[in-house]
Structures are given as structure tokens and as C-alpha cells.
């Protein structure tokens, strides 16, 4: 049985933008949840329809990509042995995915033995988006990625950009100093010591693929939130981001698992409701704008307040 999982992101009644990374104690960076079949299916269809939007690579990252592939497949087979199996027969590796009823044969480091790039292949086995950064003397650069469920950004555009440039300063929110410190921290992340952080926002609509490319498809729902539909239309969107050093290539891998939960389910939990309510009430205008909540924050706050009154 696959588990349900929803990492609630708010640990205090006030939210500040910061480098909220903490050690990932379990070392497990891939989560397989009961939405696996649905979400992996969605990823694959997005990859098929919009390859240029969902996968980008510098060809010189292929060795690092093979390292990621090894990492992901080994992790799946070690953490979820009932669903995934990896075995070696001579020069061949055989990966069995029983959830999808697939079996793939490939040879290590042999690009021709896979039907797509190694990072792309790895990403097609997991719900996570995978972003690979190459470490240079003074910077980290996004040089390969499979991204199907972006939180309003574009892999097509950010591909090839240094970490610092991806995080364009936001006046009053993210200054140059913070991004530089985070980059310096990331450059010193050691293999064997992965890190994790939770990132959150609200989504109007149940949609994982909120790419900058399709904003005109999903953005309008922000303006259709009403008192009557808010509980079902608005979702708390949580990105669980894990990052780890690949010991051989010295590249940095980000895995991003995106979770959505409608507000009417959030409100089943009194603590969560209370916390989300307080955070939304005290969120600075800049953050409200940045997270794209301007159009419906008040409706959500009103709804949460009502739920809190009913339950007390």
C-alpha cells in the first residue's frame, strides 16, 4: 500500500522569507505516494507534449545524469522494494517498476541503451522534478533539469543560468546578500549530508503544472475564488525540496516533490487551520504579491476564520 503524505509547511504563526534549509536526517529524498501512477502519468504526457518546456540538458552533464539515475533507481529499490527492483545481469542492469508494470534493460554509462537522457529517464520513474546544478569555481549553474510541476517558473528560460541569476533580487524580499549566502552555503554542501526545505503557496485550482508558460490557463482561477467555492478550489501547495551532492560528479541535485491539499481538507486539522489563518493574516503585502495571493487572500482568511469559529 502506498501512503498518503502531506508535509505541512508552516512551523510558526509568522512566515518570513529565509534560507529554511535543515538536514535531511533520513537520507531518503524520493517519496512514492498513492498519487504515484496518476502523477507519473501526467509527467510523461507533459514531457511528450512539451519536451522543450519539461526537459533541458547540457550534453556535458551526461556523466552527472548517470550518477543521478543510479541514485534514483537504487533509492527506489532500497526504500520501496515491494514496488521497484534493480538487478544486474552481466553488463546489463534491469529495472523493474511493478506499479507501472514496466521492465527496462540498460547498460551503465551507455547513453544508447536508454530511450532518453539519463536524468529524463530517472524523472519518468518518480513524482519528483529533478534539477541538476554544476559546480564551477564561483557559482552553481542549472545545466540539466526535468521539470513538469513548476511553481510559476520556466525551465526553458532559467536553463543555463547561475543560481544567483535565477534568484533575481525582489526588492524588500530577497536581496542580493541572501541569495549570495544561500549559494555559498549550497556550494559547500557535502556528499552524504543532504538538506531539505519546504516551500509553500496557495493555488487556485487543483493543478500541479503551474508553469510560467501556461499562466493564462491557470492564473484566471485566482479571480474566480468565491465564498462558496473557496474550500474546494483553493489548495495549499507545498514543495518539498531536497538537495544533495553527487559524490562523483560533484554536481548538486535538487529533488522537488509537489503536494496539493484543498482547504476543506486542511480545515480538518485544527492546528493547521489556525496556523495558516495566522500566517495569512500577518503576511507582508510584498509576500502576498510575490506568492500571487492578492486576488483572493481575503476570501481565504474569511473562510479559515469561519471554520475556526465553527470548530471552537
Amino acid at each position: 500500500m502506498l501512503s498518503s503524505r502531506f508535509p505541512f509547511p508552516l512551523s510558526a504563526d509568522i512566515f518570513q522569507y529565509s534560507n529554511n534549509l535543515r538536514p535531511l536526517d533520513t537520507n531518503v529524498s524520493i517519496q512514492v505516494t498513492h498519487e504515484y501512477t496518476e502523477e507519473v502519468g501526467l509527467k510523461r504526457s507533459l514531457l511528450k507534449q512539451h519536451p522543450e518546456r519539461c526537459f533541458r540538458e547540457e550534453i556535458h552533464t551526461r556523466d552527472a545524469q548517470w550518477e543521478v539515475l543510479n541514485y534514483v533507481l537504487h533509492q527506489l529499490s532500497q526504500v520501496y522494494p515491494e514496488h521497484f527492483r534493480l538487478r544486474q545481469e552481466g553488463d546489463n542492469w534491469i529495472f523493474e517498476n511493478t506499479l507501472l508494470g514496466e521492465e527496462v534493460h540498460f547498460r551503465d554509462l551507455d547513453n544508447d541503451s536508454l530511450s532518453c537522457a539519463p536524468l529524463d529517464f530517472a524523472g519518468r520513474q518518480v513524482q519528483e522534478d529533478l534539477i541538476l546544478l554544476t559546480q564551477y569555481d564561483d557559482k552553481l549553474v542549472l545545466e540539466a533539469g526535468q521539470l513538469c510541476f513548476p511553481g510559476n517558473w520556466s525551465l526553458y528560460f532559467d536553463f543555463g543560468m547561475p543560481f544567483m541569476d535565477i534568484h533575481t533580487p525582489v526588492p524588500g524580499l530577497i536581496d542580493d546578500g541572501l541569495a549570495a549566502k544561500i549559494e555559498r552555503f549550497l556550494m559547500r554542501v557535502e556528499s552524504g549530508k543532504p538538506w531539505t526545505r519546504l516551500n509553500w503557496s496557495l493555488n487556485a485550482g487543483r493543478r500541479l503544472d503551474t508553469s510560467a508558460e501556461t499562466f493564462d490557463e491557470w492564473g484566471p482561477y485566482r479571480y474566480r475564488v468565491t465564498e462558496d467555492n473557496v474550500g474546494h478550489l483553493v489548495h495549499l501547495r507545498v514543495e518539498e525540496q531536497n538537495l544533495m551532492r553527487m559524490p562523483r560528479s560533484n554536481s548538486l541535485l535538487f529533488t522537488i516533490h509537489t503536494y496539493l491539499m484543498p482547504l476543506h481538507e486542511i480545515t480538518q486539522n485544527q492546528t493547521w487551520t489556525n496556523r495558516l489563518y495566522r500566517v495569512l493574516c500577518t503576511l507582508s503585502p510584498k509576500l502576498v504579491e510575490y506568492k500571487g495571493l492578492s486576488a483572493y487572500r481575503d476570501v481565504v482568511v474569511e473562510y479559515l476564520a469561519k471554520e475556526l469559529r465553527v470548530n471552537t
Binding site: A12, S18, N19, N20, L21, R22, P23, L178, W195
Partner: peptide, 14 residues
Amino acid sequence: VNVPSSCEVGGCGT
């Protein structure tokens, strides 16, 4: 005194 923290090993700056 409520000081936010995250990694607690001197790495994140929170």
C-alpha cells in the same frame, strides 16, 4: 525569546 531557526548547525543563517 523566540528566535527562528532551521538547520541548527551554523549553515542556513535563519
